[in-house]
């Protein structure tokens, strides 16, 4: 499990994450939701050791993130950030190979190559294997990055807004893949999502943040209620049941 013990993060005088204690990373998908600036990405940054908490501690499987060697943690925890701008030109195969780095240290063994092939195959990227990332569409590129974290072969996978800039079809495609990763491969996924309907459809548990604090943390049906969503987003959200599933209507 990934556990935050009173984690606090400040930028100057602004407290972005305020004494958060929470534990997640159980089986299935945990969605982090909340308005802009709620501290979702900061929380993910703390867990992924990109940021250091000003107070408190983050544990992964009982070990403090700060004192565990980074190379060792990279075998348990994979992080995919929102912004993946790369200066050099890399092919799909290249970045998936780099995803194996924690295991291979740059020297690919037969086992590493199998992992790479499986990851590429799993995301149906075989025909794009040797294409450069800048020659791919947004959806394909996102799949390539997910193949990279898949090849890293970690227990936990952290995805920071993987649906950014994708169209409807690709959003659905990515979320289905994430669901499959969790169900078939047993990856424990923590994903930051903006569209609460995606969270409600695919996540097992939803953690809602606002102003650097956790305001709700429950299974999806307890979150998908007008009063809860209003408290999270500070705007009126209507929730209707369609085909037995709660759907949030927030289009005005």
């Amino acid at each position: 499990m990934i556990t935050l013990h009173g984690a606090t993060k400040r930028y100057g005088r602004t407290t972005v994450l305020d004494d958060v204690s929470v534990s997640f990373g159980g089986e299935g998908i945990t969605a982090l939701i909340g308005p802009n600036g709620a501290g979702k990405s900061t929380l993910l940054g703390l867990v992924g050791r990109l940021l250091h908490p000003d107070a408190g501690r983050v544990d992964v499987d009982g070990r403090d993130v700060r004192s565990t060697p980074s190379a060792q943690l990279a075998k348990t925890l994979a992080v995919l950030r929102q912004d993946n701008h790369i200066v050099a030109r890399l092919t799909v195969q290249d970045i998936v190979e780099l995803g194996r780095f924690p295991h291979s240290r740059g020297r690919l063994t037969v086992a590493d190559r199998e992992h790479i092939d499986r990851a590429i195959d799993y995301l149906s990227l075989d025909e794009y294997r040797h294409r450069f990332l800048d020659e791919l569409s947004g959806g394909q590129r996102q799949r390539a990055f997910i193949a990279m974290v898949l090849a890293q072969d970690t227990k936990y996978v952290l995805l920071d807004e993987p649906l950014n800039n994708l169209d409807l079809r690709h959003m659905t495609e990515i979320m289905k893949l994430v669901r499959r990763m969790a169900d078939e491969l047993g990856r424990r996924v923590i994903v930051v999502l903006h569209d609460i309907n995606f969270a409600a459809t695919y996540a097992d548990r939803i953690v809602a943040l606002r102003d650097g604090r956790i305001v709700a943390d429950a299974a999806r049906d307890q979150i998908m209620r007008p009063d809860v969503l209003r408290a999270v987003y500070d705007t009126t959200v209507d929730v209707r049941e369609i085909d037995g599933r709660p759907v949030a209507l927030y289009y005005g």
């Binding site: 992924g48 050791r49 990109l50 060697p69 980074s70 190379a71 060792q72 943690l73 990279a74 075998k75 925890l77 994979a78 992080v79 995919l80 950030r81 993946n84 701008h85 790369i86 200066v87 050099a88 890399l90 970045i95 780099l98 995803g99 780095f101 924690p102 240290r105 740059g106 020297r107 890293q152």
Partner: peptide, 21 residues
């Protein structure tokens, strides 16, 4: 350090995620 340099190509966050100090 050549393989590590390859990882650094991905940028700092990704390199840290892959275990590079």
């Amino acid at each position: 350090l050549l393989p590590t340099l390859d990882v650094l190509t991905l940028g700092e966050p990704a390199a840290i995620g892959l275990g590079v100090s």
